[in-house]
Design a binder for these strands. Structure first.
Lengths: 205, 205
DNA sequence: CTGTTAGGTGTACGGCATACGCCTACCGAG
DNA sequence: CTCGGTAGGCGTATGCCGTACACCTAACAG
């Protein structure tokens, strides 16, 4: 009966994501999103209760992509299938690094991630893990992926931090300086999969 | 010749940490810290260039504790020694959960963490790992610890998220709902060490 | 005692999220 | 076609925030 909405939630979250991708997370403000949509600031509040809800919408938009791709092939070892699923999560989040800090606070609610977890648990179950082993394994995988993605985007191994470490006094930090020197040839990809392989090996493969 | 400073950096960072511990990270503001110290807001700027520098000071205060404890005993397997070092990092950060989000942005500069990394690399070296293996292992350990600490404090397994998952439709998420039900008896401590054991097992133990 | 230097302060500005009340576009009913 | 009510959109105002700037003043060197 009354006036219909002129914007969809998808438009909202897409606009917010566009702002983040363009100006980074600090650039995200109700004003900026409103400008992006061509409406007034306060009109936004007809769609979300507060800024937090807008952030949750963006996170959901980004994370939903993790499940939009086809399911993993049943072929291959379970290690290969878990690796594929983990890679999918990594590339999904990595596509929008600016959103990363928001995912921690708003992760729980995402159906996409829930379905991802369900799939991983399934593969682990088929691999012969018991109920409690499965939980520990899933949480460990999640912890590793979360931490690794963060390290990759907030303190990359090939970045300024590593060169700073390489410049430390070698007498006091012999291992670190040596590590920093040889770390320059280690790509983020090899690093990530190396650590993941450790975890999978520990899982019994 | 001129007027001496009336505050030390330790007092500054301690005051900021006190504010965070008492009112949480959102409660941290230049005004609040100034009140805590009994000085005017602008007087703070005689000690730090901006808010970011104050945050870095707090992070450094918290992380420095990781190395103030005595070195790990040379006895025991290398797995036990790494576990001890990792535990030390976990309890250090866990003592001030409010600071957690700040550590990601300001972590690199901490001498305490640098010395921690040096020690871990040393143990890994004695365990027989080669140079590149050591780096991958250290970074994997760091990634796991970072992610696990975050999961523990921002989305605890025994918290609201898990009960929400337990309430999901069991037909659609059979593994997840079953996992959430049996996860209630899994303490954060057992979860953390379970995942860590996986990683260490993968390292060749 | 006095001049210099740097520590401490008060005021002010622009940006932020957002509570509140007004205007009005839209739709169903008559 | 008209009209009334509902809910969308907007302007204004408030109280936070970080911080630039100009001023006052405590303290030491001479």
């Amino acid at each position: 009966m009354p006036r219909p909405r002129s914007l969809t939630q998808d438009q909202l979250s897409a606009a917010a994501l566009a702002v983040i991708d363009r100006e980074g997370l600090p650039g995200l403000s109700m004003r900026a999103v409103a400008v992006e949509l061509g409406i007034s600031t306060m009109a936004l509040y007809r769609y979300v209760q507060d800024r937090g809800e807008l952030e949750a919408l963006v996170v959901e938009l980004v994370l939903s992509a993790v499940d939009s791709t086809p399911p993993p092939p049943d072929a291959g070892t379970w290690q290969a299938r878990v690796t594929l699923l983990v890679d999918r999560l990594r590339t999904t989040v990595g596509a929008h690094p600016g959103v990363l800090p928001l995912t921690f606070t708003h992760r729980h609610r995402s159906p996409g991630v829930l379905r991802w977890g369900e799939t991983v648990l399934g593969v682990l179950g088929e691999a012969g893990l018991g109920p409690e082993e499965r939980i520990v394994a899933l949480r460990a995988l999640l912890a590793y992926v979360i931490g690794a993605i963060q390290q990759e985007h907030l303190g990359a191994l090939s970045g300024a931090g590593t060169t700073a470490i390489a410049a430390l006094p070698a007498e006091e930090y012999p291992y670190l300086t040596e590590a920093a020197r040889s770390a320059r040839s280690l790509t983020p990809d090899r690093e990530f999969h190396g650590g993941l392989a450790l975890l999978l090996a520990g899982l019994g493969g």
